[in-house]
Nucleic acid binder design. Structure first.
Lengths: 345, 345
DNA sequence: CCAACCCATGACAACGTTGACGCCGCATCG
DNA sequence: CGATGCGGCGTCAACGTTGTCATGGGTTGG
């Protein structure tokens, strides 16, 4: 009966026509502006309801200029990684208090897709962008950044761009892990890491290397496996290490997914090696997994702080926030070297 | 030196002026249209680079009409819940293959915030919307839906709206859990559930009740605790159940967060009750946790399928897909009732 | 040598909204 | 009683882009 099917979404002009007022009055009535007669306002509202009208935010945004957007973008490697989702949670809560809405997109650690996502969000004129970037250069964002769009880099620093940044203390955390294990007497420590191109990986490796240097463990890199990007790869890597003639007496798993893979590999092992992981893992306390912990929510909150500050007009130079780490000894990291460890399998 | 600071983002007109061509030619050159002299094209490109120009997607979208958007929205309760993030992962992969970009926002199970997020995305004219809705009515979306915007409801069905839906087989899964536990001899089963208003909760409860009816367990609801929405609340709920004079000999934890809370509560327990959880949990296999499992990624893929079909112009009536569940017996669910269970604490 | 054609480019309008401004009529005030 | 004010409403232009149509110069072919 109603002829509104298929006609596309109705415009303000149609609402105005139906309610017998000018387009501008309809805009005023629906926009909550003051100078409208109550009777007119309700007539316009009725017409809008009848047509199923919804404001065209695209047109509004164009007319008003970019500063009215309430959307903030977050680009991360993987939604399903609890580190990122907790970071997103902390960020979101603080943005919401300011009426800003967080939209998150996953790059799958693909630099090209990351660029396309960033483009899509920037073209849509988001109010700001928070990125855990997988790319190796960010000059691409220089123009936007100069034009005043707030950028905050989290977890991984920008390259060739001076922008606000929130990082973990990767070096220190990994050094703690190394010190902890060598102090317990371990000399053969299996180290399993993520994609070698990631700055977090390199920083953690540096920190661990520093601990090895201090402890006088020269050949530690013999037990290093890199590019274990998912749980299954990590499990295989650990199984490989354990199968060696002189297997490691301890493991340092350099992120949460790798720790999960290691725990899977160690299942039912009669004399499991000691284990320290970077990042918290679910049920880590229940399972007694020693980890280098930190606070992803706080990272999100600090990122929100930097971003909101820029949105409020702060113009100073790029700032950098470092989130501390602390080692939680829960049992797995305190196991001594197995006596028979020198024997091959 | 360059006077481009603070001037806002440059427009096509400025690029055109700098390169000495008309706005339309600049548009053609940057848009990759064919009829442009190579030399002109590179001149325009240089000017764009120099100014740090980026296409204004808002204006383009307005000019071209909504059908060009490549953004699909996903609204979920909580980013940090692995069920949702895996669903998002499955959805995203299939959308990406079609060049569509998924943006995810978290409603925090707040119906009002959900509405505002949906409004923001719909006003921005996303190409489609996938919702795990926490609201109790969706007539609000009726107009958009009639105007052809594709909606897919996941995990929870729409109310007062006929739209495509992907659901879990909650009833069957919960019934399986109940049958499994009663078959092992349990008669006092602690049941811990999420917010009682959620349809998933009600469906699971119905399924469990059906199993109890068949097994002849009349007073099962005496051991029911609802509205345990986070891990801490679930832990408390389980501790409360265990502290009763006649504690349950088994637990049915109705979602993944609740299962985590229960595992925490059961830590170090000398004779833990049997446990079956709904949803998979990380390390569930390592820990030997019996669960009613399903495939969240598949849920995402099916949602993508329905959505893409609509985007491709399918106009049929609303469809409903049900994702099966299966019980994974890993140990925790097969523990028999503890003999001394009738004794109080 | 002129017609027919194509290529590169430009002028113009339109997408849907809102800010700036103007106009009319009625109430208020000196 | 005329000036002033203001409430209610309309007209117009502009945001930045792209589709349509037009134009001028060069090439091709009969």
């Amino acid at each position: 009966m109603t002829a509104d099917r298929k006609a596309g979404r109705p415009s303000l002009a149609q609402v105005a026509a139906l309610s017998g007022v000018s387009v501008k009055t309809a805009s005023r009535a629906l926009g909550g502006e003051p100078r409208v007669a109550p009777e007119t306002r309700s007539r316009v509202r009725d017409a809008a309801d009848q047509l199923g009208y919804r404001l065209n935010g695209v047109a509004r945004e164009l007319r008003r200029g970019a500063s009215t957007s309430t959307l903030v973008g977050l680009l991360i490697g993987d939604l399903a990684n609890p580190f990122y989702s907790r970071l997103a949670g902390g960020l979101e809560r603080d943005l919401r208090m300011r009426g800003l809405q967080l939209i998150t997109a996953s790059t799958d650690e693909d630099p090209e897709w990351e660029r396309r996502l960033a483009d899509a969000l920037l073209e849509r004129r988001v109010r700001g962008l928070v990125i855990a970037s997988t790319a190796t250069a960010h000059a691409h964002f220089a123009a936007e950044h100069r034009h005043g769009i707030p950028f905050v880099f989290v977890d991984r620093p920008p390259v060739e761009l001076a922008a606000d940044t929130v990082l973990l203390d990767n070096h220190h955390g990994a050094r703690q892990a190394g010190v902890h294990l060598t102090a317990a007497g371990h000399r053969r420590i299996g180290v399993v890491g993520d994609l070698s191109r990631l700055s977090t990986h390199r920083d953690r490796l540096d920190g661990f290397a520093a601990a090895m240097r201090v402890a006088g463990v020269a050949n530690w890199a013999d037990y290093l496996v890199e590019n274990a990007h998912d749980v299954a790869a990590a499990e295989q890597a650990v199984l490989g290490l354990l199968g060696r003639t002189a297997p490691p007496t301890a493991l340092f798993t350099m992120n949460n997914r790798i720790t999960l893979g290691a725990l899977r590999a160690l299942r039912g092992h009669p004399a499991p090696p000691a284990l320290v992981g970077f990042d918290e893992v679910d049920l880590g306390d229940v399972l007694g997994v020693s980890v280098v912990a930190h606070d992803p929510e706080d990272m999100g909150r600090r990122a929100a702080e930097l971003l909101l500050d820029r949105i409020d007009g702060h113009r100073g130079p790029a700032r950098q926030v470092v989130i501390p780490t602390r080692l939680l000894a829960r049992g797995s990291g305190e196991r001594p070297p197995t006596p028979a460890a020198t024997a091959g399998s």
